[in-house]
Design a protein around this nucleic acid. Sequence first.
RNA 1: GGGCCCGUAGCUCAGCAUGGAUAGAGCAUCGGCCUUCUAAGCCGGGGGUCGGGGGUUCGAGUCCCCCCGGGCCCGCCA
Length: 627
Amino acid sequence: MTFRKLVEEAKKLLERAGVSNGKIVLSKNPNYGEATSPIAFDIAKRENLNPVEVAEKIVEKICGGRGRIIESVEALSGYINFKVDWRAYAEEILKTILSEREVYGSSSIGIGKKVIVEHTSVNPNKALHIGHARNVCIGDTLVRLFRFLGYDVLALNYIDDSGTQMADVILGITELGYSAEPPNGVRHDEYFGDVVYVEVSKRIEEDKQLEEKRRQIARMIEERDEKYYHLNRELVLKVLGDQLKTCWRLGASYDILNMESDIISYDIWREVFQKLVEIGAVYKAESGPKAGCWLLDLSKHPVLSKEGDEVLVKSDGSTTYVARDIAYAVWKLRGTSKDFKYRILTIDPWGREVLITDVNGEIEKNIGVPEYVLNVIDVRQKRPQEIIRYALGLLGLPSNRYIHYGYEVVAMSVRDAVKMGYTPEPKQEFVHMSGRRGLYVKVDTLLDMLKEKVSQEVLERHPDWSREKISDVSEKVAVGALRYCLIKPDVDKMIIVDTEEILKLEGDTGPYLQYSYARACRILEKADVDASTNPPPKLMEEEKKLLRRLAYFPTLLEEVGETLLIKTLANYAFNLASDFSKFYEEVPVLHTEEESLKRFRLAEVMAFKITLGNVLKILGIPLVEEM
RNA sequence: GGGCCCGUAGCUCAGCAUGGAUAGAGCAUCGGCCUUCUAAGCCGGGGGUCGGGGGUUCGAGUCCCCCCGGGCCCGCCA
């Protein structure tokens, strides 16, 4: 029995009173019972009656009816409140959780359905900064969520290996004397990103000739020039290898790495372009500033028509990024006869194969038709993403399945930027990160800082722990802290990271969740009797509060499965942990004299551990049994 | 100029999708709680024109319109 079933029971009672499809919600205040229906307000409005009287009449018709769990139904100021028999309800909740365990909260909605989630997609010329980390954490949480719901999920990472940013680095090596190998002990992603990319960018800004050279290099990479293409590919794979280490550290995994250069190689674009020409969706500009370009006709689009048509093929015949992305999107929706070949790049820390597209690859993979394609990309790309979606529609593909999962950017506090030598404007409140200008906080740097801070705390609490154990726990807590703070805020809100602030690990943070989990583990570990779902005659308020929250988990997941608002999971996790902390303070478990009561409370702790564990797994926050 | 997003306590945010009962957390601050299952915790106090104004409604932080303040996007870059 969960809240969901309580709702069903309440609905049946309403039906007895002739009310079909009555809305039932969780009562805001437990004094009003466990479930509430505001249906009387709707009926009263429709039929011009007094809601208070309507509610009373409905309750009369239910005539003292009760269900298996529902003990009484009351009308109060227009609301219909359902009160439960807590002994029965508590027992059902615990039985459900203890039997379903790691699948508690899941449902069968995803069985047999496919979902593609593309995330991370960082240019392979630099180390990940905290802005990228938001993308990784959101994307990976979506992957975990869909997997939990039973979907067959494909996690993709789009590698733009043929853009200007790669040309910057190649230019540095071939023309400006930078070594193609980092100094000893320095990672490739950090060397190319922190040193070569930043310094070359600066020189290009000052020297027009270098800009022209970069353009030539970009072109040669795209055209698979023997020397440049191979140098580039080699470099990309090295940087990518390091980037993946960071992503894995955050707990994110990928099934396929799609190289942009391969989208070009497989010529998916040509097929898509022909179709676009056939249906008259594109046209060639004969005159004006865009003469010679092929443009996508946006004149019928309600919003984009105001901003002019979009160039897909440049006057020199090369494709724009939007064109390549349309081709890629068509592939995701199975709208092309062409397909990639793959090879195994590596095995990730969880033992899964990571495939990478490769024209010479041996592996073929039919990815199937997805129910959804989610693209985790920050809000600045809203317009191009909408253009792609629109083009898919023109091509007759189900564009409603193509979802831009947008999120606001991560910025730095002025304080942090100043530490990096930035000079702020008078009233500036944050500083946008910029890879080109070297203004960013790297994920690994931040994680290392967090880990260092956490290990100090751990050492204080557990002076007897081994170095390995301290390191292991600290790493998990550091990752939990970062993931939580990047997932918790609404995606529409900018996050301004301040390294000093983020090191505070109290209150509404990842470690708080992990701590409450660890506390529950300790109780269970020390228990000398088995748990039992047989309830005592009376429950304490803290117990009811905890059980109420536990029962709501399946309903919450159902909602999140539809809204994709993953932050509500973070919110739930905090409230659940908070309920448990209060329970922990007020409700003795191991110190209970009466054995049957102790056994019941152990079941409550167990149910909490299972449920919080399930949420944390979805959020990618590592479980810590001791801290 | 056109489009999108944000504005809730001193600070950071939840609540807005699906309008409903006294607007909730965390941080900070002040005051309590460790011979009892981990104090990364718990309890209590103070702190609110929900940016402003109109409208819809029995009822608006939530929906609609206007305005103000802040951010972003509108390139033959990606």
